[in-house]
Design a protein around this nucleic acid. Structure first.
Length: 285
DNA sequence: CGCGAGCTCCAACATGGTCC
DNA sequence: GGACCATGTTGGAGCTCGCG
């Protein structure tokens, strides 16, 4: 079945007709209720563009280094150097790709959480938690050049026993606000969410917000003049009520259409896969 | 008086224009 | 073409002010 796309621009709506399904891309003057009703059926851009942009995603963090110690339950242990979007380049024996990075983060958090709820959280687990949290901060800050290292130093300087409890609580409740530990504001907190729960969450990045969700009225965040997402309670709420709802809706629409894209799995093999919330955000990044 | 919203400051690199 | 300076970018932190 070939894909069939008609784009009608009226100035008020842009309507994509894809596989004979009507998909409304709301612009401004739809009520919230209407937006909510159609959100599962609307696509911000044609599906082939989503695929093209997602396959083009190329955010690498060559200098991101961390070490995971063996705790008895962990599969991925050792030194890791360099996080790459897809294939790990030749000559990077300790490099990992994004899918593997996700797995390691999830594994370390689960390992810590299991120990935490059984009231026996050894230092080794906490060391791993610190390492993996630092890696997330470093990865997120890579786009800011040499500041990444500084931000990690800041994170470690502000780390306390309370930080561990807060992270475990955040993980248990899937609560972005609680990931806002010392040295972590909304954008990096949402990176924790994205890596731990990639099916349901994505990073609320100033680029995605500034270029897509905010201009289209999908989000109504409080932004600074330069686009920085203010660390406000309203913005924290709107991550759940606006941003995430949008990502999930887009992923659901693409999956309903049977759209897949090529990615590289943890073992470095190319595979066809469906869109998760985090993939939508990666397309728009 | 406590809290939170949001303004201002800051660090360090990126980009770009000017002048010689 | 290169030294130099100005401006832009990005996101965390600190601080003030207003509100209940």
């Amino acid at each position: 079945m070939g894909e069939y796309v008609i784009i009608i621009t009226t100035g008020v709506f842009t309507i994509y007709i894809e596989n004979y399904r009507f998909l409304f891309h709301k612009k401004t003057n739809l009520g919230v209720d209407t937006m909510f009703q159609i959100s599962n059926k609307s696509l911000l851009m044609p599906s082939d563009k989503y695929v093209m942009l997602r396959e083009k995603y190329d955010y690498n963090s060559q200098d991101c280094k961390f070490e995971i110690m063996q705790t008895g339950n962990l599969y991925n242990v050792g030194k890791f150097i360099g996080v790459f979007a897809r294939e790990v380049p030749n000559g990077k024996p300790h490099g990992i790709n994004l899918r593997r990075f996700e797995s390691i983060i999830q594994e370390v958090f689960k390992d810590c959480y299991d120990a935490f709820i059984s009231n026996n959280l050894p230092d080794l687990h906490i060391i791993n938690l610190k390492q993996i949290s630092s890696a997330i901060v470093y990865w997120k800050m890579t786009s800011q050049g040499g500041r990444a290292k500084l931000k990690v130093e800041n994170l470690l300087a502000k780390w306390s026993d309370d930080t561990v409890k807060r992270l475990m609580n955040a993980y248990e409740k899937k609560d972005m606000s609680l990931f806002r530990i010392g040295g972590v504001r909304i954008p990096t907190a949402t990176a924790f969410m994205r890596f731990l729960f990639p099916d349901d969450f994505g990073i609320m990045d100033s680029r995605v917000v500034g270029n897509y969700t905010q201009p289209n009225g999908i989000t109504t965040l409080s932004l600074r003049n330069d686009g920085y997402i203010n660390d406000t309670k309203q913005n924290i709420i709107k991550y759940e009520t606006e941003y995430i709802i949008f990502l999930r809706g887009q992923a659901a629409s693409l999956n309903k259409l049977g759209i897949k894209f090529r990615d590289v799995n943890e073992q470095g093999k190319i595979f066809l896969t469906t869109f998760r919330s985090s993939d939508i955000e990666m397309s728009l990044f």
